[in-house]
C-alpha cells in the first residue's frame, strides 16, 4: 500500500482509464469556467452581447436577470430593499444552486478557482507542508462577521474586498490593482495555507455551501467496496474532510457525500482507478455489493495499527 500511496496522484487512474478518462471532470470544469467567463467577455471584447454585467448581477439576452444572493443578503442587512429585478435574479440563482449543489458555483463558475487550483498545483509540486490550517468552520464565522459589519455600517461589506467579483469585474471592465489581490491569494495558497482561501476562508463559498446543503446532485461512493485505499481521492479533494463519512462508512450508512462543503467538482471520480465514486441524486443511497465472494476486509478500524 505504501508503494501505491507514493505513486504520483492519479497515476493508476491514468493507467487504467487513459489521461482524458482520468481528467474528464477536470476538463469539463475548466471548459465550464471558460464558458461562463466567455459569456461575459464576448460583449466587451467582440461586441456580441449575450450577457451584460458581472457575476454580482447580470442580464442575459436582455431578459434573464441574475443576481448574487449573498450580495443581496448583505444589501438587506445593510438596510436596502432591492427592486424586483434583483430579487427575481437572486431567487433564480438561489433555487438553481439549491438544486445542483451550492458549491457547484465554486468549482464550475468562480474565476478564483483556477487561481487557487493553480496555486495548489504549485504547492504540491514544491512538496510544501500544508501550513496554517484554520478550522473549516472559520468561513462561517467570517460570513457572520460580514453580515454584522454590513448591518452596522450600512455598506455591502464583502464587496469592498470580494476577490471573486473584483477579478471578474476586472476582466470585464478594467483591472486596476485587482491583479495584486489575486497574486496575494495565489501566494497565500502556495506558501501559507494549503487550500487556504477556497477551503477555509472564503465566505462566498460558505454561503453557497449553506444554500446547497440539501441539494439534489451529489457524489456518492456507491462502489466503496472496491476501494483499495490508494488515498488519491483524499489527495485531490479540496475539501477532503467530506470523503470519509461516505467512503469509510460502516455497512448500512449512506455512501452519499452529504457535506455542504463538497463542491461537486468530480475530481474524486476522475482520480479513482476502480471507479468508486459517481454523480447521483441525494435519494440514491444504494451501495454496490462486492461481487467477490470473499468479503472485503473491514476498512481501517479492523486493521492492526
Amino acid at each position: 500500500m505504501s508503494a501505491r500511496t507514493h505513486m504520483p496522484i492519479g497515476q493508476e487512474a491514468v493507467d487504467s482509464k487513459g489521461w482524458v478518462g482520468a481528467h474528464r471532470y477536470l476538463l469539463m470544469r475548466r471548459a465550464s469556467q471558460v464558458f461562463f467567463l466567455a459569456l461575459f467577455l464576448l460583449g466587451p471584447w467582440f461586441g456580441i452581447w449575450i450577457v451584460e454585467g458581472t457575476l454580482a448581477g447580470s442580464l442575459t439576452l436582455g431578459v434573464l436577470p441574475l443576481t448574487d444572493p449573498f450580495i443581496l443578503l448583505q444589501s438587506f442587512v445593510a438596510g436596502h430593499w432591492p427592486e424586483m429585478t434583483a430579487l427575481i435574479g437572486g431567487l433564480i440563482v438561489l433555487v438553481t444552486y439549491a438544486l445542483i449543489g451550492g458549491r457547484v458555483y465554486c468549482s464550475w463558475v468562480c474565476p478564483i478557482n483556477p487561481v487557487t487550483d493553480a496555486a495548489n498545483w504549485v504547492h504540491r509540486k514544491l512538496d510544501l507542508p500544508k501550513g496554517w490550517q484554520p478550522k473549516r468552520g472559520t468561513r462561517l464565522w467570517i460570513l457572520a462577521a460580514i453580515l454584522l459589519v454590513s448591518g452596522l455600517s450600512g455598506v455591502i461589506a464583502w464587496e469592498l474586498i470580494n476577490p471573486i467579483t473584483m477579478l471578474h469585474r476586472g476582466l470585464v471592465f478594467g483591472m486596476g490593482f485587482v491583479w495584486a489581490m489575486i497574486a496575494s491569494i495565489f501566494v497565500f495558497d502556495v506558501v501559507v495555507s494549503r487550500h487556504g482561501w477556497c477551503g477555509h476562508l472564503c465566505p462566498v463559498g460558505a454561503f453557497y455551501g449553506l444554500i446547497g446543503s440539501k441539494s439534489l446532485l451529489r457524489v456518492s461512493a456507491t462502489n466503496r467496496a472496491a476501494c483499495d485505499d490508494c488515498m488519491d481521492c483524499y489527495a485531490v479533494c479540496p475539501e477532503n474532510q467530506v470523503i470519509s463519512p461516505a467512503l469509510k462508512g460502516k455497512p448500512g450508512t449512506t455512501p452519499l457525500i452529504l457535506s455542504p462543503d463538497c463542491t461537486n467538482c468530480g475530481r474524486c471520480i476522475d482520480v479513482c482507478a476502480v471507479d468508486v465514486f459517481n454523480f447521483t441524486h441525494r435519494f440514491d443511497d444504494h451501495v454496490v455489493q462486492p461481487s467477490d465472494p470473499v468479503a472485503a476486509p473491514e476498512p481501517r478500524a479492523a486493521r492492526p495499527i
Binding site: E52, T54, S75, A78, G79
Partner: peptide
C-alpha cells in the same frame, strides 16, 4: 452616498447601457 453603498451591487449594467 450612504444608502447608495447599501444598494449598489456593482454589476455594471448602468455602465453598459
Amino acid at each position: 452616498e450612504k444608502e447608495f453603498l447599501s444598494a449598489c451591487i456593482r454589476c455594471g449594467l448602468c455602465v453598459r447601457d
